[in-house]
Design a protein around this nucleic acid. Sequence first.
DNA 1: TCTGCCATGTAAGCCGTTACATGATTTT
DNA 2: AAAATCATGTAACGGCTTACATGGCAGA
Lengths: 222, 222
Amino acid sequence: MAGGRGGVLELAVLGSLHETPLHGYELRKRLNALLGMFRAFSYGSLYPCLRQLLTDGLIIEDGDAAAANADSPIALPGRRSKIVYRLTAEGKERLHELLTQAGPSAWEDESFGVHFAFFRHTEAEVRLRILEGRRSRLEERLDGVRTALARTRERLDSYTLELQRHGLESVEREVRWLNELIATERRASPPDEERRSAQEGTSRAPEPGAGTTGRPATPEDN
Amino acid sequence: MAGGRGGVLELAVLGSLHETPLHGYELRKRLNALLGMFRAFSYGSLYPCLRQLLTDGLIIEDGDAAAANADSPIALPGRRSKIVYRLTAEGKERLHELLTQAGPSAWEDESFGVHFAFFRHTEAEVRLRILEGRRSRLEERLDGVRTALARTRERLDSYTLELQRHGLESVEREVRWLNELIATERRASPPDEERRSAQEGTSRAPEPGAGTTGRPATPEDN
DNA sequence: TCTGCCATGTAAGCCGTTACATGATTTT
DNA sequence: AAAATCATGTAACGGCTTACATGGCAGA
């Protein structure tokens, strides 16, 4: 039973529907195109989630079918085979609420990609906190593994070693990537004189088009 | 409730205990040092798993405490505060069985790292199939996202674009990494004349110490 | 003494998945 | 007419996490 509450799916759905109304099937394709490198959702979770969001009043079935159709030239056979969903005002509110939370639920492995994908709708300050949060998360991981590795007496076999090397390098790459993104963000929306006194509302997106690379990994402690 | 069956934890535990007997607490530390970049396990899943393995007869409590102690100079207070586990013959059998399975359960994101970590105990042929399996998995993912991207009319915002770029590059890197590993494996244990006729048993490890890099990602289809 | 790490567990529940079931529509 | 893909769902279960509960032992 996958309701809509709590998981990343809710955000993914609301975020997608905010851009344009969609029906379930295409929604999933969009999501898996958008996030395909990081995760994928199945219909078995998507449809129950949509139902939940519907009963919560965050989305509604779209009245007429004249939406999301730039491809199919014929279509519109009178019968409603597709159920197109659209965000309600409450849904937009909820989306904004989700996009404003800058906590572990935004920068953990499973969720970071989804949050990042909708950064366009996220306030500059929140973006920065999420990027920094993810960075420290990864740095903790690096520290943990590095010190554990240093404490290790017995030398490891070559496969273990190679795995370690590969993992470390990947996480280091992602940290570098985050560093550049953070720098770009800071350049675009400077910290304001008097750190943390006057807070601006929303600011323009800093166009992060100059990155190198890096990549996600996974958790560490209990 | 996390039993021992089916998940990667079972393999991780059996694999670790195969190297040396350990008690739960240290086992977890070992695992999170070994796999820290990819995933982490909590006590809430580890202990139930150990209990399950115990009742299944795959592990037993170690008789005397003279094990896994190269650090603590004092120790051994008579009372058993630590419960040290050791593999049984059945456990070793089960471990070998798990290490022999070259299927999706070996090359998916959650499990690949764990399987790779114990490649030392895996037959050369199986290693190769797992590496190739993972590679095609990643290539499917690349194809899927690339074609979906090509079909997309509307141009995406810079964050989405950057996420896509980063994801693609990361997966491409892992593919290159796999390519080198596979090449190394092939060099070390050549395909035998007459493909698939005479099969050798176990062969020596090919020492994969000359890789570049790459990195994991996540699923795609229903 | 008291903070913190070692050490072992349990209960509840989250967030999804797989597998199944069904039917319309489009393509071959 | 068959095969593929679109489209929508449900039931059952899986594997792990979080939060809780408990206690011994070490060093500040």
